[in-house]
């Protein structure tokens, strides 16, 4: 049962001190580099290796619970950016009703993104992942099937990512908040799937027929996909230290 995130103190928007976890020393030094937009390696001028290593475009998600929250923040940034573009598209490829509901979804993702940003800034000052700029194929937004297929991909990816990352948290309260978000993502996923193919809300390509379990994915596999939506010459996310 979450004991620190219960909103008993709703009159105050101040940080809940009980949520604050001191930054590990190792984390602090890593972040000295990561927050500058490049890994610490590039700053380590005294390192022999650095003399021959090109400036890294790899951005670490960091360590500990901050890294898992940054992981979620990266995914929500991706989803929010996608839906913002999807519902803003002037070409009408969705029905009025579909567009209205996807506008709700776009707002949910924006709220998730903004909430995670606020929570990370509050609980792990200085450790927030940078704002990411994504590239989407323009043709995605001018064809209903392509648009909904992309939406399905992002929603199912989000569900699998949260499912796989829950165990990486150290503080149960963060598991609870992630749980509060992932079920909304699963609701989105089921809805978008049915828009695309009626009755596919929990089809066997996503939910195992024998175990009845939804997918779960390791962060490295998820980020591999997320990185394909980032400009590879500018920034690539590095999850190698997530949860450590």
């Amino acid at each position: 049962m979450p004991d620190t995130l219960r909103p008993t103190d709703s009159e105050s928007p101040r940080p809940a001190q009980s949520l604050h976890t001191p930054i590990k020393r190792r984390s602090f030094f890593m972040y000295a580099g990561a927050t500058a937009g490049v890994t610490a390696l590039a700053l380590a001028g005294c390192s022999k290796e650095s003399e021959t290593t090109a400036p890294s475009i790899n951005v670490s998600l960091g360590f500990g619970d901050a890294s898992v929250l940054n992981y979620a923040y990266a995914l929500e940034q991706l989803e929010a950016a996608f839906y913002a573009k999807a519902v803003a598209a002037t070409t009408t490829v969705l029905s009025t009703a579909e567009k209205a509901v996807l506008t709700n979804v776009a707002t949910h993702e924006a709220i998730h993104r903004d909430f995670l940003q606020a929570a990370i800034n509050r609980d792990f000052p200085g450790q927030l992942l940078q704002t990411l700029t994504f590239k989407f194929d323009d043709a995605t937004f001018t064809d209903r099937t392509r648009l909904l297929t992309a939406a399905k991909t992002f929603e199912d990816l989000g569900v699998a990512a949260y499912n796989g990352a829950g165990k990486l948290f150290k503080v149960p309260a963060y598991v609870s908040i992630a749980g509060q978000i992932v079920s909304v993502e699963a609701r989105h996923a089921a809805y978008v799937r049915d828009l695309l193919t009626s009755g596919s809300f929990a089809a066997i390509d996503q939910v195992d027929a024998t175990t009845g379990l939804d997918k779960q994915m390791a962060p490295a596999d998820v980020i591999k996909i997320v990185n394909t939506y980032l400009d590879a010459t500018v920034v690539q996310l590095d999850v190698s230290t997530i949860g450590q």
């Binding site: 569900v159 992932v182 079920s183 909304v184 993502e185 699963a186 379990l213 939804d214 779960q216």
Partner: peptide, 8 residues
């Protein structure tokens, strides 16, 4: 969590 998201 994998059951939870299926319920959702």
């Amino acid at each position: 969590l994998q059951i939870h998201s299926v319920e959702a």
